[in-house]
Simulated assay, not measured.
Amino acid sequence: MSIAAVRGLFRTAAYEHPELRATVLEVAEEGMPYTAVVGELLDESQPPAEIALLPEGRHVAQVLNGPGSVGTGTAASATPPVPPGAAYLVTGGLGGLGLLTVEWLARRGAGRIVISGRSAPMTAGLPAASRR
């Protein structure tokens, strides 16, 4: 997976789930000293950031949180992520991740879930509750 894909996933997670805190650390070359940033990575008071240790130096980009971020006075969970009675279409819903997504939606009150996929439902390796 390229670092751009990881950064995109990280930025989306930071925006959609401001209650979580994560940091991306990119080490450009094997053997580069990363021990200097370990304390920063473990410091929970630091905002989400992307840290790149490159041959030309250290680069840091702070990541913006989405609505409901800590300190704004609005709760991140003010609006339920799955409005009761809402309808959802899950494409690729017959694979492992799709079935887990369907179960997650159902447990949170989704009114109607339409599942589509090109293969037979995957059941191997899934928890028993997901195989229903």
Rank of each mutant, 00 (worst) to 15 (best):
P84F: 07
V6E: 05
V6K: 08
A49G: 08
R7D: 08
V37L: 01
H59Y: 07
A87W: 11
P55W: 06
I51C: 10
V114D: 13
E26I: 11
M122R: 15
L99H: 11
H59N: 08
A4T: 14
P83Y: 08
L9D: 10
L9I: 09
E56N: 14
A129G: 14
R118A: 03
V114I: 13
L41E: 07
P121K: 14
E30F: 09
L97Y: 11
E29A: 12
T72F: 07
P83W: 03
L42F: 06
G92W: 08
M1C: 13
G93S: 04
A129E: 14
L41D: 07
P80Q: 12
R7I: 04
L53W: 01
L25N: 03
A13E: 10
G85H: 15
L97T: 15
G57N: 01
R58K: 05
L97N: 15
G71C: 03
I115L: 02
P81C: 05
A106Y: 01
A124C: 01
E56G: 14
M32F: 10
P80I: 05
L20V: 06
G8K: 02
L126Q: 00
A128K: 10
L105G: 02
S45V: 08
P84M: 09
R131C: 09
A129K: 15
T101G: 04
G66F: 03
S130P: 02
S2L: 08
P55A: 03
G93A: 03
R21W: 04
E26Q: 14
S2H: 12
A14E: 09
E16T: 11
A14K: 08
L20P: 05
E19P: 14
E44K: 15
E40K: 15
P80E: 05
P81M: 01
G93K: 00
G92A: 08
R58I: 00
L42E: 12
I113P: 01
A13W: 04
A49N: 07
N65L: 03
G71N: 03
A4I: 09
L64C: 11
A13T: 10
G125S: 00
V37K: 02
A75M: 11
A86E: 12
L89C: 10
V82Y: 07
G31H: 02
L20G: 07
S77Q: 11
I51M: 10
Q62W: 06
G31S: 00
G96L: 06
E30W: 10
G85M: 12
V60P: 00
M122V: 15
E56P: 12
R112L: 05
S45Q: 15
E26S: 13
A124D: 07
P33D: 08
L89N: 15
T74F: 09
P83E: 07
T72A: 11
H17V: 09
V6N: 05
A128P: 04
A36M: 09
P55Y: 07
G96I: 03
V24M: 01
